[in-house]
């Protein structure tokens, strides 16, 4: 008898089989003495256990036992009633965190903005050798837009003389 058959026999005893399976097991029992013997053993054990659990008594007096339950209930009621006090750091953190977050966002935004329009950056982008004592050049280059803008300034006159846009390939 394999494991599945043994468990099926047990399910038969416990009335956990479908009517069809039940019929199959009944037929099987009629021809298999080993199955009948095992079923008889399982039945005997189940009958012996039924209603024969040892009676155990609580080894504590009624009043003492109940007083412990009552104390536990009082303790839990107090815990629930008490306002939840957050630690100082946690309370501070609650206010500091949004402020710090906003400040960080502003700084990052400012840095990005500065990087995009800074003349120094533009001059760097333009490359060295494009400036002289009389002239200076600032170049803005956008790969995405496929364009370069060059600002030319006349340093001697301290006035901007011209600017032109050059399309790149």
């Amino acid at each position: 008898m394999n494991n599945d058959q043994q468990l099926k026999l047990q399910s038969y005893l416990d009335d956990e089989l479908s009517p069809r399976e039940n019929r199959q097991v009944t037929e099987w029992l009629a021809v298999d003495s080993d199955a009948r013997a095992l079923l008889a053993e399982l039945k005997n054990t189940t009958s012996a256990l039924s209603g024969n659990e040892l009676e155990v008594k609580l080894p504590e007096g009624r009043d003492f036992y109940f007083s412990k339950i009552q104390r536990q209930l009082e303790r839990e009621a107090k815990v629930q009633a008490a306002p939840v006090r957050e630690p100082v750091l946690a309370r501070l953190w609650k206010y500091v965190l949004p402020l710090a977050g906003t400040a960080a966002a502003v700084i990052v935004f400012a840095m990005v903005l500065q990087k995009q329009i800074s003349p120094a950056t533009l001059a760097y982008v333009a490359g060295e050798g494009e400036t002289s004592e009389e002239m200076s050049a600032y170049t803005y280059h956008s790969q995405a837009d496929g364009m370069t803008v060059v600002w030319l300034a006349d340093n001697s006159a301290a006035t901007e003389v011209s600017s032109e846009a050059i399309e790149i390939q």
Binding site: E55, V56, L58, F66
Partner: peptide, 13 residues
Amino acid sequence: EELVGRHRDKIYA
């Protein structure tokens, strides 16, 4: 308390 008194043995058991 009366309920506890009545059923405490069974629950403990």
